[in-house]
């Protein structure tokens, strides 16, 4: 699914559509492209239009090219901060946004599991995934009553007033919250190779196996 349609009129679209303010969309693209990892956050909506995302906020997270995991304490801090700003949870905790560094925006098994476990007890929730080349995926799920879900189109909505870009602030937000895991992994691999071969353990295992078989042969010989 590509975000090609542009909403320009003051009226809301007749079919339910996830809409981003131009600023939020620009920020999400910036955050997606800033590093080489996945990133994730929450969409912030006004109280009167919950499918309109006017900001995307990051929480502290560890990320790799294929994975993003939020820091639990940072999520709690984010909730507190948003409540202090006068928002209700449905404005800041229902739209789960994350990126895929490739060009496939389809949710993975891990995404589905998280969506069910974490967002499955709220009245409704929305999972939005943005991949490269504008590929995106949005699914709205209702958990109340009989439940149900709906794949939604996603658009940029120019009909409301919006703020300008602030790359410096977005960069700061990224650097404050995103901890790429790959760096640590590479560092640990490098230190492993500096301290010795990663196959040392395997060699030890093989040595003990040969010792064992030798012992067995010895026992047979003695018997």
């Amino acid at each position: 699914m590509k975000t090609t349609k542009i909403i320009g009129s003051r009226s809301r679209p007749s079919t339910p559509t996830l809409r981003f303010s131009p600023t939020a969309w620009a920020k999400l693209l910036f955050l997606r492209d800033y590093g080489r990892t996945e990133i994730g956050g929450f969409g912030i909506s006004p109280a009167d239009d919950l499918l309109y995302v006017d900001d995307v906020r990051l929480v502290k997270q560890t990320c790799s090219w294929v994975h993003v995991a939020f820091d639990d304490t940072s999520v709690a801090e984010f909730f507190d901060e948003q409540v202090d700003a006068g928002r209700q949870p449905e404005q800041f905790a229902r739209i789960w946004v994350h990126t895929h560094p490739g060009d496939c925006a389809q949710p993975s098994a891990v995404d589905e599991k998280t969506f069910t476990r974490v967002f499955g007890r709220s009245a409704w929730a929305l999972m939005f995934i943005l991949a490269k080349r504008g590929q995106c995926f949005a699914r709205l799920r209702f958990n109340d009553g009989p439940g149900g879900e709906l794949v939604l189109p996603a658009d940029v909505d120019y009909s409301r007033s919006f703020l300008g870009c602030d790359h410096q602030m977005w960069e700061q937000e990224y650097l404050t919250n995103v901890s790429p895991q790959q760096t640590n992994l590479v560092a640990s691999r490098l230190s492993e190779s500096a301290n010795g071969s990663p196959f040392d353990e395997e060699d030890e295992w093989l040595d003990s196996w040969f010792d064992y078989t030798d012992d067995g042969d010895n026992e047979k010989e003695t018997a």
Binding site: P101, C104, T114
Partner: peptide, 10 residues
């Protein structure tokens, strides 16, 4: 607040 919020590339 929810814990273990994680996503992954398929």
């Amino acid at each position: 607040t929810p814990t273990k919020i994680e996503g992954a590339l398929g």
